[in-house]
Design a protein around this nucleic acid. Structure first.
Lengths: 158, 158
DNA sequence: CACAGCAGGTTCGAATTTGAACAACCCCGT
DNA sequence: ACGGGGTTGTTCAAATTCGAACCTGCTGTG
């Protein structure tokens, strides 16, 4: 019965890739997180929320949509929106078409906070990842990781 | 004075790479984390600790060395070693050559836990990252991310 | 129209993580 | 031998994160 197939261990190349992935993600994450916190007082999660909101028509988005876009849990988003709301960067508005729904709306202060912190953040991203790679390497990375992320994306409803 | 140079925003290609990086790291991390937690009751951090320890001569390592290898903070490691110690997978031993030092030592139970959980973990890593890429893509990824991680590594003491 | 099943958000508790502050200790130059 | 300076781990409080349980309110079906 269910006897597992012999394990295919990782060879040296594969191990190097996995380890490199872990180290890079860990360090890049810390780099970006630290820069944002020090220079703008925002966590990366909070910054991303502002970005997504600012990219929409009215600067507002349903909680669920936001959560999906941020690859985070619903409860995690509830928490972060609460934090941003306390600081007046975002406010909640109930959805006109669905009583249950909640819209997170970017406030003028939120838009301003984003405008101020964006340059520093972009610089950090360049320093940590973008400017470290040659254009072709960057494209290869985008293609490869795009596939990786896509395959783990929650079912498009099969 | 200190006026910042004009910000070099990210173009579409760069944006795609950054977003892909964020999505991939987020989803891969969750995938691996979930598999380990469900199948072995270990967090990825804990699993990595067992791996590093098992790779050494006596299955032991100084706290600081371990923390560096795991790209984590010292206090974070203290916490995790505490958890593993509670479960009998690791135990602490004071360092013979430095009174301040502490050695984390893998116990037989710890070695056994690692042996049991490794196959499932490797499978998850393959499913999420390794087997999704062609050999050349994997090498390119390793080269690129290796450089990225290396550049953000704490000063080798200049 | 009534109902079962599902979707949207929040709440709650448990587990982690991080940096700062500490206390103890090693090491090197004077 | 001595003192300053850097190291080693731990402790502590604050911030997050996640999944499970819940309550409400949609929605398609009979």
């Amino acid at each position: 019965m269910g006897r597992m197939a012999e394990t295919r261990w990782l060879d040296e190349r594969e191990m190097a890739a996995w380890h490199g992935f872990l180290e890079a993600t860990s360090r890049v994450s810390r780099h970006v997180e630290t820069q944002l916190k020090e220079d703008a007082g925002l966590s990366h999660a909070q910054y991303e929320i502002l970005v997504r909101l600012s990219a929409t028509e009215g600067g507002e988005l349903r909680m669920t949509e936001l959560a999906e876009g941020l690859f985070t849990s619903k409860s995690g988003l509830t928490y972060q929106i609460g934090q941003l709301e306390k600081r007046g960067l975002v406010h909640r508005r109930s959805c006109p078409t669905d009583v249950r729904g909640v819209l997170a709306v970017l406030t003028p202060a939120g838009r301003e906070a984003l405008r101020r912190s964006a340059p520093g953040h972009v610089a950090a991203v360049r320093e940590a990842l973008i400017d470290v790679l040659e254009p072709d390497e960057l494209d290869a990375l985008a293609r490869a990781l795009g596939r990786v992320g896509g395959r783990l994306r929650p079912h498009p409803a099969d």
